[in-house]
Write a protein that binds this DNA or RNA. Structure first.
Lengths: 128, 128
DNA sequence: ATTATTGTATTAACACAATAATACAAAGCG
DNA sequence: CGCTTTGTATTATTGTGTTAATACAATAAT
């Protein structure tokens, strides 16, 4: 995984936020873990340091990260952060999905059926 | 439903596109149906006419709408448009959802379980 | 103390989304 | 025809996302 790929339709700094929320939710960044420097991340992501700074600064406002000037940036040393993040992201993903499907006029049974079909398609043909 | 509500994090013209795709997919705008004028929609949505124009113009490029100068704008007179639109939107919603959940480390069974829980919560407590 | 590393702040420049105010083109209508 | 309605185009302005180039502040390492 060389460089990150961004959706040109959404602000990059938000996508960086998402990436870190996902990584932390998965447990790839345990509480207290050090995050790469703004400059290193910028090089790795192929974006401007200011863009990374903006993203990490937002995550700090959310209480997910903590920064120490001259030292570095760390995942908040709170063992519950990961669980809360994971639960919140699962919930919002489900809610978004359900909302999108209901707007299309599907009822609960149809929603579950459509998901099942999509899951089977993704498992059958394109196993990669 | 007085005025539309927009997510300030996404371009308004894209959200207007989404709204129309949803409405057409639901069948609320059958093939050949006339769409309100750019100016009326702008007033109704509480946005600038140019923003609406941009959105509807994009839908035209997709073949969903057709415009006649001095007359008005209409849903493409193609009976298959709705089905294609509906199928495409269901599929992309499922794919987005599955992708978001897999990033979080959930397998197929957990994805279906989480959705089931969310559906039950939405049906039980907050019936509105 | 000096140096390197890190987070932070500032300023400028550019692109795009959105608003605003017009003007023009084409169709419908009385 | 004359008027209205509609889609379309143009120009200017504002706000924001992004890049860019610096500078400053604080910590660690030497």
């Amino acid at each position: 995984m060389n460089k990150w790929i961004f959706d040109p339709d959404k602000p990059i700094f938000r996508q960086i936020c998402e990436k870190f929320r996902d990584e932390i939710a998965r447990g790839n960044f345990p509480p207290g873990a050090k995050v790469p420097s703004v400059r290193d991340l910028a090089v790795f992501a192929g974006v401007n340091p200011n863009t990374v700074q903006r993203a990490l600064s937002d995550l700090e406002d959310e209480g997910i990260l903590v920064s120490r000037r001259g030292d570095g940036r760390y995942v908040a040393d709170d063992a519950t952060v990961r669980d809360k993040l994971l639960a919140a992201r699962i919930r919002s993903a489900c809610d978004d999905f359900i909302g999108a499907m209901r707007v299309l006029g599907l009822d609960d049974r149809e929603i579950e059926r459509s998901l099942g079909e999509a899951l089977r398609e993704k498992s059958d043909g394109k196993e990669g």
